[in-house]
Amino acid sequence: MAVDFLDRYSRGSTWCHRWPARLKIVLTLAVIVAVVLLPISLWPIHGCLACLIFAAHAVADIPLSYLLRRVALLLPVVLLMALCVPLSRGFSGGWELASALVARALLTFLAALWLVNTTPFDRLLAAFRQLGMPRSFVVLLAFTYRYLFVVFDELARMRTAQRARTFGRRSPWAVWNSTVQLVAMLLIRSLNRSERVHQAMLSRGWQGEFRTID
């Protein structure tokens, strides 16, 4: 299946994976709040938290290369935002705040990454519902998650078909144009599908209200 990147490590079977989802959500949020609330002058505590987060990743069998890749993707954005602070003073100050921002962003990101890579989405969803998320939003989330796979499959098929029809180098304009068409076609198909899904729901007696078995 083309879409196994959606939950790459979350279906593992380590000790961390078996913890209840609610406990993991609360723990992760506690770490995140601690990182954000503690002044950066207490950097030894941040260091300890960093060690804790890395240890948790290690226990959960999440490879270091994956962490580095994700951090490498996040870092430019965070640096750019943080650099705005010293830049706004002509590089004459604001470095403390900027470095605090980067450190906090990285630590909280790694903590969240541990949570989402040890808990599959359906378990998170159940935990959200237990933690009081409105039912209609939970149902919509489940629906969206279900159709992510269908839409990604459709996208992959369309890309293959498009590649099969194009040869050689193309001008940037042509690439741009075909990409716009790809997404637009995907939009049209998805809207058509939502129409059919709606018909299928009506066919099984749906009257606009979601009921669940538990």
């Binding site: 359906d122 969803l125 489940a142 629906f143 998650y145 599908r193 059919r196 018909q199 299928a200 729901m201």
Partner: peptide, 17 residues
């Protein structure tokens, strides 16, 4: 009503649902 494309009809997260 059985629709042609199963993905149109299977909109719940699990088979049981």
């Amino acid at each position: 009503f059985l629709f042609q494309d199963p993905d149109d009809q299977l909109f719940c997260p699990t088979v049981g649902d």
